[in-house]
């Protein structure tokens, strides 16, 4: 009985572990299923929700892609551990790199790293980190600032002896996002930076496209952050109201100081 129960639960967890897609959002804090796949290009990147563990077995030299959505004010952080093939089968040092791209495939800077590391021939694993810049609520079209939308993570063996290609590795990825105040305050990007993924059509010269791509045919979009109406757009409300009350109190105090100075100064004596 117990054995069968164990088997059943093992089978269930195996099914859960094998699922490659984030669980439907139900708001419960239950642990999210581990993702066991990775894409091989921007278009096939596996979607990961922040906090969801990823563990993928791959071959040395594979280019592994994941995508995640980030909302305004959030600061993304990525931690990757690559378990390398046995030292006996390797021929030299290997360099691994994580690159982060925004929805327009523009390279994103890491504010803290290391985003690339070289493993000597004898080491068993490489650890990589990348803290992203805080996502802004709005930026000029000409700027490179991080904006809400899709982000792509690529894990690359950026330098290694050619003989070491194809050996088994395991990559563990952890993507997390820390919330914060979105800047500039009160600004909003009308459409998140989530690119279309459906094939396009060539138009007759001079024709203008009818409508934009439907929302389902685009890469993952960030959820709108849920906030109370009073805390929106920011804590500025509290500062301003507090300042007003303080000003009123000071005005009354100043008035009474001039009208009844004795009350104030006799108390001091």
């Amino acid at each position: 009985m117990r054995a069968s129960l164990l088997l059943a639960s093992a089978a269930a967890s195996a099914v859960l572990a094998a699922t490659a897609v984030p669980a439907a959002a139900d708001g419960s804090p239950s642990p999210q299923p581990t993702i066991g796949t990775a894409g091989t290009s921007f278009l096939t990147a596996t979607t990961v929700r922040p906090g969801q563990p990823v563990s993928v077995s791959a071959s040395t030299g594979d280019y592994l892609y994941w995508s995640f959505a980030t909302a305004a004010g959030q600061t993304g952080r990525i931690a990757v551990t690559v378990a390398l093939p046995p030292a006996a089968s390797r021929h030299g040092a290997a360099t691994y790199t994580i690159d982060v791209f925004d929805g327009l495939r523009r390279r994103q800077a890491c504010t803290a790293g290391p985003q690339n590391a070289t493993a000597a021939a004898g080491t068993a694993r490489v650890r990589l980190h990348c803290s992203l810049r805080q996502v802004r609520a709005w930026a000029e079209p000409w700027s490179d600032d991080p904006l809400p939308g899709t982000y792509y993570l690529r894990l690359t063996a950026s330098g290694l002896p050619e003989q070491d290609l194809g050996l088994p590795i395991r990559a563990d990825v952890r993507i997390s996002a820390k919330d914060g105040d979105a800047r500039p305050a009160g600004a909003k990007l009308k459409a998140p930076l989530s690119p279309a993924v459906a094939p396009g059509t060539t138009l007759a010269p001079g024709a203008s496209p009818s409508g934009s791509a439907s929302p389902v045919s685009s890469a993952p979009k960030p959820a709108e952050r849920v906030k109370g109406w009073f805390s929106w757009p920011s804590s500025r409300w509290w500062w301003t109201i507090g300042g007003g009350v303080l000003a009123a109190v000071m005005a009354v105090a100043g008035y009474s100081l001039t009208r009844h100075p004795r009350r104030w100064f006799s108390a001091l004596r």
Binding site: P233, W239, L246, M250, T258
Partner: peptide
């Protein structure tokens, strides 16, 4: 932004309130 924030804002508002109170009192 239409609203303000920060300690400098509080000092300015409090100072303005105090001056207004004093002037009214005088």
């Amino acid at each position: 932004p239409d609203l303000g924030r920060g300690w400098l804002l509080l000092v300015v508002l409090a100072g303005t309130g105090l001056v207004a109170g004093l002037v009214t009192g005088w």
